[in-house]
Computed example of a mutant assay.
Amino acid sequence: MVVEVEIGSLSTAGSPRTSGPDPEHVESLAVAQAPLPPITVHRPTMRVIDGLHRVRAAELRGQSKIAARFFDGDEADAFVLAVESNIAHGLPLTTADRKRAAERIIASHSRWSDRMIASVTGIAPGTVADLRRRLPGGPAGGVSRIGQDGRVRPLNGAEGRRIASELIASDPSLSLRQVARAASISPETVRDVRNRMMRGEDPMPAPRQGRQSGRHESAAARRRGFGTTAVACRASAQERAAVVERLKADPALRFSDSGRTLLRLLNVHTISTEDWEELIDNVPPHCGGIVARLAGDCAEMWTELAARLRRKVTETA
């Protein structure tokens, strides 16, 4: 919900943009005729999460109030949302700011995977791994990590499978979820381990072939110029579609109105990179600003949804 807030009540401390607002960008926003899109504010502290340049532009325009949306999560999640918002749109953060943000998120969300933190901060997963190794305590931080899809995975998958196979051998009556919790792997992986054991096979699968081709495909997408956007930074269209299809099979979502609404919304984002490019190319110039503003508003709502769900997963994991 968008509300009007007093600019004087806002705090601009703690921004991931350590150099502060860019004067030229502030002035360009101030002189534009279009209304400023709503900013995002952390309700408990009234700190600006996203929209520092818009706040300064509103002040230049002589406004005493500005449109805002509130975020009610904790401060750690508010910082994550600030970083993710600045990566998704507006004036990009510098590489140094992104790395500093990644270090802070590693400390506050230590159970997040390198890829998940990379997707938020806009740097490579390998860079996140390097930063994690250099921080006090090194790469430690539990036996599992939470991935971009919200699933908990062990740092050592082979070790999780080994533990699962021992548990199944010692007590075949244990449920998939009981074994999954004890071994810090997914119930699907436990099922695979159990089926392999029933067939007399090794619980460890043979090394997969063909994953490298997926990486080449992603690199090719980046070379086409689309990979630097927020859409392509996430999983490929095929991967997103596969995840959505699994969600469609979940009765908890299929048999509720809100669940079906969520599935329909998620299904929209399973279109391919080429389809996204075609959509962008075919937006008429006179509609570009309106569509961009609406897309930005939608992105902010999805970003808030993602941050709140991640916090929920972290609290219940």
Rank of each mutant, 00 (worst) to 15 (best):
I106Y: 01
R47M: 07
A101S: 13
V80D: 06
D72N: 13
A58P: 03
A118T: 11
S119M: 15
R100K: 12
I66F: 02
D77K: 08
G138T: 10
R47Q: 10
R134W: 02
A82C: 08
I105S: 05
A67P: 01
R43C: 00
A76P: 05
V128C: 06
S85N: 12
A68M: 02
V55K: 01
A82L: 12
G142S: 11
S85V: 08
A129H: 06
M116H: 12
A78D: 03
I66R: 01
A68S: 02
A129P: 01
G90P: 04
A58G: 06
S64L: 13
M46A: 02
R69W: 01
V83S: 06
L52H: 13
E84F: 08
A107R: 09
V128F: 06
V80H: 07
K99M: 10
V120P: 01
A78F: 01
F79Y: 13
V128Q: 03
I117E: 04
D77I: 11
D72C: 10
D130M: 13
V143M: 13
A76Y: 05
P44A: 10
L91S: 06
V128D: 03
D77Q: 11
R115N: 12
A96P: 00
A82S: 10
G138L: 11
R54E: 06
R43D: 04
L81E: 00
T40I: 15
E59I: 14
G138P: 09
R69F: 01
M116L: 15
M46N: 05
E75L: 13
R100W: 07
D72V: 11
R54V: 05
L60C: 13
S144M: 12
L52N: 04
R61P: 02
S108L: 09
P139D: 06
V143A: 12
I123F: 13
A58H: 04
R54P: 04
A76H: 08
T121Y: 09
G51V: 03
D114V: 08
V80K: 06
G73H: 02
E103N: 08
A107H: 06
S110N: 15
G137W: 02
V143S: 15
D77E: 11
H53D: 08
F71Q: 00
G122F: 09
L93W: 05
V55H: 01
R132D: 00
E59G: 06
A67C: 03
A101Y: 02
L52Q: 05
I117V: 12
T95P: 05
V143F: 13
I117M: 05
T121C: 14
